[in-house]
């Protein structure tokens, strides 16, 4: 791709002038959108950022005194009994659980999403539309209702346990609800379409003649997949992973309903600070930290794509 630039003929001064005008006009035209973004997206974020550097009010809210307390509290805890300073292991384990479950969700949705997307992309045009339509159906239903539906499937007197007992596989119901596995199942189910759609978009564009070329050159199936398919559909993989990983990290409903609430994820922990904990600055700082983690993950992904490209 980089080679294309060197072939472009030199631009005449007239064209350059037209270009400058066009650039200027484009800027003007996008001004409303930029203003909206600045006010609508950055404004609230700025408030969150500022709140994270203030003291908590007595019963919720903030007191306008600057302090680094909230940020200190994220990482360190002063033992409430002997007042020694420790690493905040409770916070770290909550964060680690969120990151771990989000990564696993991304992996699971990829493992199921890739064959699905591949299957759809290799159907006839009419069939593709039908399959895609089926993939989008879950979006019509509210997240909470879908989560409760899963609960109905895996609870002790739910469909799976009842059938398993009826057919004599087990005697007593297996406790599936209120486990980390249940959370994982719920998140993978909810976010699967977000993985399938971008994967489908890039697999659909894939030139399948390249596969034949690969086989002609004596590559085996794994080599074809690893050296030809994966690099070419990587933009779809990256997009899908971002779409799944980012909302998983902030998941709130699924861990609460399916996880039984015994173990928090970041989303629940942030809610605690704005709710019963009445410590808004800590909640704000945690939200900012979550944002930073997401931003770092995005940077990582973007670099991963450009890395793949330069190899190609």
């Amino acid at each position: 791709m980089a080679a294309a630039d060197t072939n472009t003929p030199a631009i005449s001064s007239h064209e350059a002038r037209v270009n400058t005008q066009r650039v200027r006009r484009n800027w003007l035209l996008s001004l409303p959108a930029i203003c909206l973004l600045l006010i609508g997206a950055s404004g609230p974020l700025l408030i969150v950022l500022i709140y994270s550097f203030l003291e908590p009010g007595d019963y919720g809210g903030v007191t306008w005194k600057p302090t680094l307390d909230a940020w200190f509290k994220i990482f360190f805890r002063v033992d409430i009994f002997d007042e020694t300073v420790h690493l905040a292991d409770a916070h770290l384990s909550i964060f680690w659980r969120s990151v771990k479950l989000s990564l696993l969700t991304t992996l699971i949705t990829f493992a199921f999403g890739f064959p699905t997307a591949y299957f759809i992309a290799t159907r006839s045009k009419r069939q593709r539309a039908a399959w895609l339509f089926l993939i989008t159906i879950p979006f019509w239903t509210n997240l909470l209702i879908r989560t409760f539906a899963i609960m109905e499937v895996i609870r002790n007197e739910g469909i799976v346990n009842t059938l398993a007992i009826k057919f004599g596989f087990i005697d007593t119901p297996i406790q599936m609800l209120y486990t980390e596995g249940a959370v994982l199942l719920g998140m993978a189910y909810v976010y699967l379409p977000l993985m399938v759609l971008p994967l489908y978009a890039s697999i659909e564009r894939f030139d399948f003649r390249l596969l034949e070329a690969g086989y002609d050159l004596y590559a085996n199936r794994w080599q074809v997949f690893r050296r030809i398919v994966l690099p070419l559909v990587s933009p779809g993989i990256v997009a899908g992973s971002i779409l799944v990983f980012v909302p998983s990290l902030g998941a709130y409903v699924t861990p609460r309903v399916l996880g039984g609430g015994r173990k928090m994820m970041i989303g629940n922990f942030i809610e605690l600070q704005f709710g019963q904990g009445q410590n808004w600055p800590l909640g704000a700082a945690l939200s900012m930290l979550l944002l930073i983690v997401v931003a770092v993950a995005l940077l990582f992904y973007v670099r991963a794509i450009s890395g793949e490209r330069s190899h190609g």
Binding site: R77, I80, S93, I94, G261, M264, L272, Q276, Q278, N279
Partner: peptide
Amino acid sequence: SPAARDLYTAIWTELQK
């Protein structure tokens, strides 16, 4: 009191870590 509440939140968080 806010002080008591902060103590309780700390225990509550540890409980659900």
